[in-house]
Simulated scan of single mutants.
Amino acid sequence: MPSSIANAIQERRAFLFVRGDDGFVLKPLAENGVTGVLVWVGWGTGGAPERHLPEVKRLARMVGARWLRFHSARKGWLKLAPRMGWVRQQDDADGLYVFQISL
Rank of each mutant, 00 (worst) to 15 (best):
M1W: 06
P2T: 11
S3T: 03
S4L: 09
I5A: 09
A8V: 09
Q10S: 05
E11A: 08
R13W: 14
A14S: 12
F17H: 11
F17E: 10
V18Q: 02
R19N: 05
R19I: 12
G20A: 14
G23A: 04
F24P: 08
F24N: 04
P28T: 07
P28R: 02
P28K: 01
L29G: 03
L29Q: 04
A30I: 08
N32C: 00
N32E: 12
G33S: 13
T35I: 10
T35M: 12
V41T: 12
W43P: 02
T45H: 04
G46F: 13
G47F: 15
P49A: 07
E50R: 00
E50K: 01
R51E: 00
L53T: 00
P54R: 00
E55L: 05
V56A: 02
K57D: 05
K57E: 08
K57L: 09
R58E: 01
R58V: 02
R61E: 00
G64H: 04
G64Q: 10
A65D: 06
L68S: 00
R69F: 07
H71K: 09
S72Q: 00
R74P: 15
K75Y: 13
G76N: 03
W77S: 03
L78E: 08
L78Y: 15
L78H: 01
K79S: 08
L80H: 07
A81G: 00
R83G: 07
M84E: 10
G85C: 06
G85R: 03
G85Y: 03
W86A: 13
W86T: 02
V87I: 12
Q90E: 10
Q90F: 15
D91N: 14
D91H: 01
G95R: 02
G95M: 04
Y97V: 09
V98P: 02
S102F: 14
